[in-house]
């Protein structure tokens, strides 16, 4: 499983938090505790007054990349439900190639 990862096109994460709830539903995790993913909402302020509003889905130690689902050919629950379709599951090598074509993107191997 270690050759797989999740590509996060965080430019497009709108902080809808669907990934978090999808994960908690899938693994019956309670509110108040982290599951496999957590979205951090940030407003960056730069010198000169520039700003950016960015949301970062962070994958935690609790993420198993939905092995029970991917074994059945399903997408990880967060990937499938992501409203912005900004998460992609796949082989690290292929995802890394896609990464080269785009900015504001990160690759996770939780």
């Amino acid at each position: 499983m270690s050759e797989y990862g999740i590509l996060v096109d965080y430019e497009y994460c709108t902080a809808c938090h669907a990934c978090e709830v999808a994960c908690k539903q899938e693994y019956k995790r309670p509110a108040g505790k982290h599951a496999g993913v957590k979205v951090i909402e940030e407003v960056h302020q730069f010198p000169g007054g520039g700003m950016d509003v960015v949301n970062y889905p962070l994958f935690t130690k609790g993420c198993n990349m939905c092995r029970p689902r991917t074994k059945k050919g399903l997408m990880p629950s967060c990937v499938q439900h992501c409203m912005a379709a900004c998460l992609e599951f796949g082989r690290l090598e292929e995802l890394a190639k896609k990464m080269g074509q785009k900015k504001r993107i990160s690759l996770w191997r939780p």
Binding site: A18, V21, Q80
Partner: peptide, 23 residues
């Protein structure tokens, strides 16, 4: 459990946190 229907033309499998909380 509630899942998005990937074959649905409107949402294409996506769902918001409110639907995902239906249980």
């Amino acid at each position: 459990k509630v899942e998005g229907d990937p074959e649905h033309p409107w949402s294409q499998g996506r769902l918001c946190p409110r639907v995902l909380s239906m249980t």
